[in-house]
Each structure stands twice: as structure tokens, then as C-alpha cells.
Nucleic acid binder design. Structure first.
Lengths: 214, 214
DNA sequence: CGCAAATGTTAGCACTTCTTACATGAAGTC
DNA sequence: GACTTCATGTAAGAAGTGCTAACATTTGCG
């Protein structure tokens, strides 16, 4: 029983660091799942294949995650963290309260969708049946909060103003739809000819400065 | 060999019309799949369960559909037909060229998403890996064409005008995003307090009448 | 009628999720 | 150091899935 022949089917590329106990299996698992989701789509992922990629048996994941949905939720949670950070850094790259800052938040959103379409789809396709996950709910609120903050600064109103909330929601929905259509229609001429920044600036301008109650 | 004991596991509610050969199994299958998708989400559907619901063996579907994705594609195709019809009738209920007609197209879209969130998610989540289905592509173009037509009439420009195309795309993306967020956030206060019609009229107004190249 | 095609069935393979029982290594205690 | 304890791995297996192969029945057409 030498500790070198521990893994009869491991990929040869795996560094022979951890012998029996894996260094950080949960993190490696959600990384593997992220790759798989990006490769085969949100539904084309299997716990077994993720375990295979991590070099462990197909039962090992269940020591760290209750079931398959919980693994997915882990991926989503991590992705939402990254999305929120990206949106914040996008806004911070422009003057506080500027329209550009609002558009930059949207661009971070679209960029995320374009860079990780599978994960993006997973994040917003997982709400079906997972409404009971309070942490995901909270992270979603956090992301929306970034939009609200940028919109409020631009409108010089407090973030809890109802008009700010409404317009932030409208902005979010437009960018959300644009992101989905972008990754869905990558074969077609993207966005009927307008590039991201033009789209985002136009939408931000129109939504934030147009009188809502006509 | 009486023809009454034909089906050892049929549901008792099925009328004893078809004996061995099913009346119209493909249609009954996609109806069953539609129900299942609505019940358990786009990925929580199995060919076996659909066959069970249709009262046939688990191998019968493969006489009509090549594989599981093809069944899904059938559901999506049928759904896109209904969506396009709904959008057209929505527009026809208002004066040609009016802003209300544009908003009504959007409302049909949102209503569809709200009525069949599972199918709606399936329609726009299936693009991953199914870009090669030319009929679905064409039906998607048909739906977008309804938006373009309404926008063109409202702007009094020909439908192939680039500005019409751009603004129609923006309209579509906004309504698309609003639809997704609506079905995702049905637990929360919907849409930050604005109802569908207000949202749609405001967006249509802002997108169609605001100068794009600021 | 008689045969071919269409449409159903059962049996079975490879694969998946997830559970149960067992093995191993690491950490703490005396 | 020896001994227990616990977290984390494995192997084996039950139940379900997609899909195929081989067989059965009904329908339609000459």
C-alpha cells in the first residue's frame, strides 16, 4: 500500500502534492464545475465528471456538499461575488455621479456575461427552485445595490428614493436583457449594429434623464 | 389477446380510444414536456417521465424524436410560434404606429414569460449548443420582426432603416430583461414598484424618441 | 389478401445521483 | 510514543436516466 499508487485513474497533469487528503477539495470542485459549465452549458455538468477532474472518487464531493444543487449554488455564490466586485470597480473608474460611471457598471455586467456565458446563465437560471437560498438572495441584492448607488449618485438623490429605485431597476433590466441577447446571438450581427458602450450610454441617458410619468 | 388490456400501466383517466397505436404521440409528448418543464424547470425534465405521462413506454419517444434535445427543440419551436402570434395580436389591438402598439408587443412578451416561465426560460436558455437549428433561428427572427415592424411604424421609417433596427433591438433587450427579472424575482416586490404597462410605455417612449447619438 | 413500414414493446448497456459501509490520514490526549 | 477521534477519502450498490437493439403489432398500400 504505497501512498503513490493512490489514484488509479488520476489525470497525469495533477501535481503529486496531496496524497490521500486533498488540499482544498471544495474550491477545486467548484473550479472544475465552473469549467464544465462553461464547456457544456449549465445543465451539461455532472458531479461525477467534476470529481474526476479534481482527481477524487465520485463520492468524495458529497463529503463537502449535500447534493448536486448545493454545488451549483456554490458556483453561483462565488460568481456573484466576482460580478459585484467587477461592477464596483467599473464604477470606481469614472467620476462619482457621472453617467459614465453608470454605464461602466453596465459594461462590467455585459463583460461578465460575455466572458463566462455559462456561469452567467447559471446564475440567472438557477433562481427556479432555489428561492430559499438566503445568501444568494442577499448577494443579488448586493449587486442591485451597486446599480442603485450609481444611479442615485448620478441623479443626486438618496438611494432609497422611489424614483431612483425605479430607474435603477429599468437600467438593470435593460442591461440584463442586452447581456442575455449578446451571449445568445453571438452568431448573428451583434446587437443590430450598436456596440456595448454606445448602447449603455444611450440607455443610461434615456432612462435616467427622461421623465418617467409621462 | 383482448384489445382492452393493452396497457398494463396506463393512467386510468386516459380515454380508451387508441389501442396499440397512439393517436398523436408527438403532440402529446411535447405537451407533457411542456407541463414538466413548467413544473420542475427546464433541466428537471426526463424523457422517461414524459413518456410515462403520455402512457407509453420509455422507448416510444425515440420513434418520433432523435434524442432528448430534439424533443426540447420541438417544445421551443411550438412556444416561439405562440409567442409571435401573441405579440402580433397585442400590436393589432392598438392603432397602427402608436406608442401603445409598441408597448403592447412588449406586454405580450412579458405576459408570456409570466404565464410560462419554465418554457420561456427554456426558449432562451436553449440557444447554447443549438445554434445549428435553422428553424429556431428563423422563428427568432420572426419574433424580432414584430418588434421592428411596430417600431418602424411608430417612427414612420422603413423597417430596414438602421436607426429603426438599433432602437428595436434596444426595446427588445429591455423587455427581455424585464421579463427575466420578473419571473426570477416573483418573491420580491416586483420591479421595484412599477407595473408592467408603466414600465413598457416609459421604455418605449424613452428609446424611440430619445436621440441615440448624443 | 399479403407484405412493408410505422409505431409500439421489452431487455439491456452505460452512465448518472446519492447512500452505506469501510479505510486512511491528521490532530489531540494521556 | 500509543490511543482515540474525526474529517475526509474509497469502493460497492440501489434507483433512475438516455438511448439502442431486437421483437411485436397495427396500419396502409399493392
Amino acid at each position: 500500500m504505497s501512498d503513490q499508487t493512490r489514484d488509479p485513474q488520476s489525470h497525469p497533469g495533477v501535481p503529486p502534492k496531496a496524497a490521500y487528503h486533498h488540499g482544498d477539495l471544495p474550491a477545486q470542485l467548484i473550479a472544475a464545475v465552473r469549467d464544465l459549465v462553461e464547456l457544456h452549458g449549465p445543465d451539461g455538468f455532472s458531479v461525477a465528471e467534476a470529481a474526476r477532474r479534481a482527481g477524487v472518487s465520485s463520492a468524495a464531493p458529497y463529503k463537502h456538499f449535500k447534493d448536486r444543487p448545493e454545488i451549483l449554488r456554490g458556483v453561483v455564490s462565488e460568481a456573484m461575488d466576482r460580478l459585484r466586485v467587477a461592477m464596483q470597480t467599473g464604477a470606481a473608474a469614472h467620476p462619482h455621479g457621472s453617467l459614465e460611471a453608470v454605464a461602466a457598471v453596465g459594461r462590467a455586467y455585459v463583460d461578465f456575461a460575455r466572458a463566462e456565458p455559462g456561469v452567467f446563465r447559471l446564475v440567472f437560471g438557477l433562481t427556479e427552485g432555489h428561492q430559499n437560498a438566503p445568501d444568494l438572495l442577499a448577494k443579488g441584492e448586493g449587486c442591485f445595490g451597486v446599480v442603485v448607488a450609481a444611479a442615485a449618485a448620478c441623479m443626486r438623490l438618496p438611494p432609497d428614493d422611489p424614483d431612483v429605485q425605479s430607474r435603477a431597476y429599468m437600467l438593470w433590466s435593460c442591461v440584463h436583457g442586452h447581456s442575455f441577447l449578446t451571449i445568445d446571438m453571438k452568431h448573428k450581427v451583434a446587437s443590430a449594429g450598436i456596440d456595448d458602450w454606445t448602447y449603455l450610454m444611450a440607455i443610461s441617458h434615456a432612462v435616467l434623464e427622461y421623465p418617467l410619468r409621462a
